[in-house]
Amino acid sequence: MGKMWVIATNTFREALRKKTLYILLVVALVAIGTSRFFSFLAAQDELKMIKDVSFATIEFFGAILAIFTAMGGVSGEIEKKTIYTLLAKPITRKNFIIGKFLGQSMVILLNAILISLFFIGLLISKKAVPDMEIYKSLLLIYIELLMIGAISLAVATFATDAFNIILSFFLFITGNLSVYFKQVIERTENIIFKGLGYMLYNIIPNYENFNIRDQVVVGVNVSWQYVGQTILYGVMYIVIAVLVGIYFFQKREV
């Protein structure tokens, strides 16, 4: 655990040294800040817009950060050849991958906390104290970002950066459209295609599970049971991605 923690804290420090985090943070805060321009709308509509824009910003910029941090974590170490020093020490490849994942999770958490604080501050300034549903939605977005990061980390262990970016964004889009995909499967009559479709539906990360914000912004309550099940789904998917990452990194010639 100690070795993993060393890798994790180094990954975190390395990310803080890079400008990516700060640029994304500033752009995200500006994006959320612009939602204040909707003050010409009725108070209720303005609040809805602030929430919609903020949730979308936290998710979108968080996803970019997760993908780039995960990608840089592996390929950066290989390019700078620092990985040779690391692996020469008594650090196993398994420790390296898990440590990298923990480190990038801290970066994603820091980013999510800072943007969320700004968002909550904005709501309070509008005299709308955020309720528990807002926090549930933020929690699910964070788990989703961890999942995106874990998948990107797994891909980084065997593919190039360009492929990783394309695949991660492709999964981000398809994962958010899973409802549509499911509807297509349900209407398919061919039993083989139906079976293959359901298999694919379960393999592709279902990011739509984490999307409760469309309901939360209009005042719909979401049960803790749903939130709990979705967190469990996210955690299991993260474990799968990390295990796949370990498998391919063990096989990789460095």
Binding site: Y201, N202, I203, N209, Q229, M236, I240, L243, V244, Q250
Partner: peptide, 22 residues
């Protein structure tokens, strides 16, 4: 190393059941 991949594939089964619940 194969164990890692085996566990990962095996984990898809509970993930599938969980997705049905979700």
């Amino acid at each position: 190393n194969w164990v890692n991949l085996f566990i990962a594939v095996l984990l898809y089964i509970p993930v599938g059941f969980l997705q049905v619940h979700i």
